[in-house]
């Protein structure tokens, strides 16, 4: 009996070992990759490239892992967690996880023409002002992209990114 239990524990340990949250990992990779296709103009070259995440999300851990080895241009990536509308920082990208989607209305006025890419994660938010909205289509991770919303933020977007996304 003990051996059976041992076997089960060992097998369980093997299965558990990957400890993944693939969705969040790929979302973080997408967000990092967006930086290759968006042009932020001006700014102080010595400033960090700030990516803010509103609320708790495993995307924060994934972005921090990326930030350890990667930079945007020559800017160091700094990942910031936001807990309330009063704490919204100056940042290049703001990611709203699904659980904070209802905060979009609070966030948008704060970043009006502030050169911040607003990335959301719930269907329908492109229409409400998000620059890029991560969505799932038939079990596949896709993203909606709004050229006009991006330009409203004072940013430029490459045509290749527009072609990869679902333009709205």
């Amino acid at each position: 009996m003990k051996k059976k239990i041992l076997l089960v524990v060992l097998l369980l340990g093997y299965f558990i070992r990957p400890g993944n949250a693939q969705n969040e990992k790929f979302k973080a990779l997408f967000i990092f990759n967006f930086t290759k296709h968006i042009e932020w103009r001006g700014g102080n070259p010595s400033e960090d490239f700030v990516i803010a995440v509103y609320g708790n999300s495993e995307v924060i851990d994934a972005l921090q892992t990326i930030a350890k080895t990667k930079a945007v241009g020559n800017k160091k990536i700094k990942v910031v967690k936001v807990t309330s509308p009063d704490d919204l920082p100056d940042c290049k990208i703001l990611y709203l996880p699904p659980s904070k989607s209802n905060r979009l209305d609070d966030v948008l006025p704060h970043y009006q023409k502030g050169q911040t890419l607003i990335v959301t994660d719930k269907p329908g938010l492109s229409q409400k002002g998000a620059s890029i909205n991560l969505i799932e289509v038939n079990g596949k991770q896709k993203f909606e992209i709004s050229k006009s919303n991006i330009e409203k933020q004072g940013l430029k977007v490459t045509s290749s990114l527009l072609s990869l996304g679902i333009e709205v």
Binding site: A21, N33, K36, I66, E136, Q141
Partner: peptide, 30 residues
């Protein structure tokens, strides 16, 4: 795909990443 590190994954372009996300299956634990 799952064996690839973050460092390796960040080298891919977005089109490849989307392909890999599909291979992994984004909704396994939805």
């Amino acid at each position: 795909v799952l064996k690839l590190s973050y460092e390796e994954l960040t080298e891919f372009d977005l089109a490849d990443l989307m392909q890999m996300a599909e291979i992994v299956g984004m909704s396994t634990d939805e």
